[in-house]
Design a protein around this nucleic acid. Structure first.
Lengths: 208, 208, 208, 208
DNA sequence: AATGAATGAGCCTTCATTCAT
DNA sequence: TATGAATGAAGGCTCATTCAT
């Protein structure tokens, strides 16, 4: 008892000595996320982030090398969340149409639960990675799709004869642009999912 | 007298009254194009454009409302060139694979003859049109593809049952991202064309 | 008459078209001089200089690459003034003691007519030229003294056998530090001149 | 026992209760010295000093009022070392040339054994003592030389009739600037010593 | 129509110092 | 005595745009 109360209240041998830091970083990242989503990369100043987080201007640079590094951290965070969401949904699928649909639904579900995040990440990333760095999130997803499809082709679930490095990117590009246009025009999600699923499935289903 | 008439008539398109306004605008636009392609939107200052064009700093604002308007003019110019190139090639095609391939070749041919222009237009556009303006070149192309496909579906050349507003965007997105990734990695163009043509054709070919 | 009035008032074919610039530069330099003397290099911000000159913040960078370049311009201006003053006085001298005294008086006269300038130049220069650049004003003066003495040695007015590259620096160093200490302690100028003249003269007078 | 008593009594002024405060101060000072010499005053942050000393950032302010006080402590330490070196060498000299040479050699010897220290002290001091504080090391040395020469004048070893407050500063100034210029240009030390010795000796030797 | 000097809001970042632990 | 996260004033500089000529 004595030990417990000591440990949890006053002393905290190590648990808190260096502990305000992680909290600060988390608060900064949360503030950054909110502002990047709301205003975009360029319109968000490190100062705004700090103030929103309730911290001093200089504290920002204790946790991020610069504004760009902070944005990258936000991007990475979002990417991890989305990947997790996709993985969760994709596991349940058994056939190709099921897989495509599961992934689309996972993405749109995430986009609804985190409004603006996906758009912010994808559109501001272009601002930063001066054209042609080849490391965008979209391209990484394209590669992942490529890998996934290559494996499914081996199992006969996807047509052979494709260069999946190309096709993976094509699938992600198709999803990206069709979704963006659809959301911007507030079109119903169901039609989007149905058409995209059919489009991708037909392109990839093995002949016969 | 002789001097005056010489000065006012000779090598200027419409040279009517006094000075050479159209020439100035054209020179500014050419300079802007070169600089936007070479350095990107943000790294190009109106001042740089004027000086490159051999004109005074203030002259820029005589011809463009602001920097953004100048960039849009460049985008529009490029778009018109590309559309013309595509239209020329697409006319020759008779079946769907032929059409897709013709269009792809037209685009890549343009990209080779005007290095950097396409990438500059597409990547810098994102910087400007703060997420969600819905007017990007890519989306316009998506709409055009939608129209085209809808017509071909009526003729039985393309599968029915699609919402072509969605599918048009998907096609353009697929082309865009696959091409970008391919070029960044310096992959052979032939494989890109082949895979993309097959991907799109299979997705769109009518059943049976 | 008509021509004269035209030229002096309205048109000014060329005299004024590009003319507000030199005036601005001069005003900035004057303001910089006043502030560098009054507050020192570090305590003077480019902004302060511009405001003191009655100009906008950005105008400063139209005329100077950066703060340091502005300070260098001030240093150079002062150096030219002092060199001119010294040359004027030194010409009258006939023998070595006369020369030394003439130079000392020229320097102290300048220092009185331009209070603080000399001290500011010499002390702030150290701040800028990170130790060991070897281009300080004092060293340039040392070199000039070296040249002067070498010539006088050839004429038999100064002792031979010296390496005047060393001795020139020694003379300037002696003058500099003795003068600085003297002024800081508000000691009478006469004693300073008398002792310094005697010191230098004895060191340099040819034997016999 | 021996160790304990040594630790608690010997080399710490007041070492009483528990921990190693003096050790901390000494480590900070050593770190400061290394960094001031290597990077200069402005480029060295209290934080760097603390970390280099293996101590926490805040500890710095337990031992020094501020950054400037720390630099002064470094200056004082170096001054004491140099004074000791000079005193040791100067004692052996019997005549004026011998004395001057002995002192010069002591200084250059120190400069070689402690590379950068002298230059760092002298050049950074100027940065700190905003023009005209009248307390620089050089001026203190000038005063000491003044005293020394005054005494020697009483003994007939140095010319009378000088105001040694002025001449002391002149001697130090001559040495300082000639040496600095010489080192910067990597000139041979021998010529420097010879010329400086001759210069000062001739200026100060009694007539006849 | 053309000029280019002038503008000043705004940007990102640094660093000496404090203070709760 | 020791710590190091936090602070925020201050810094130098850029650039899209205006306007007197």
């Amino acid at each position: 008892m004595a030990m417990v109360s000591r440990t949890t209240t006053s002393n905290r041998p190590k648990g808190r000595v260096a502990t305000r830091q992680p909290a600060s970083r988390a608060r900064l990242l949360a503030a950054a996320r909110a502002l990047f989503v709301e205003r975009g990369y360029h319109a968000t100043r490190p100062q705004d982030i700090s103030r929103t987080a309730g911290l001093g201007h200089g504290t920002f640079y204790l946790h991020f090398a610069d504004k760009q590094a902070c944005f990258m951290a936000f991007v990475e965070e979002a990417r991890a969340e989305i990947d997790a969401a996709i993985l969760g949904n994709a596991a349940k699928a058994t056939d190709l149409p099921g897989l495509v649909e599961a992934i689309l639904l996972a993405i749109y579900d995430y986009a609804e639960r985190h409004p603006g995040v996906l758009v912010s990440v994808l559109s501001n990333e272009a601002v930063i990675a001066a054209a042609g760095s080849g490391n965008s999130i979209l391209e990484r997803w394209g590669e992942e799709w490529g890998e996934r499809l290559k494996q499914q082709a081996r199992q006969g679930l996807v047509a052979r004869g494709y260069d999946f490095a190309v096709v993976g990117q094509a699938v992600v590009g198709a999803i990206h642009q069709a979704s963006l246009a659809s959301f911007e025009r507030s079109r119903p999600k169901a039609a989007l999912v149905r058409n995209l699923t059919r489009f991708i499935t037909r392109a990839l289903t093995p002949e016969d």
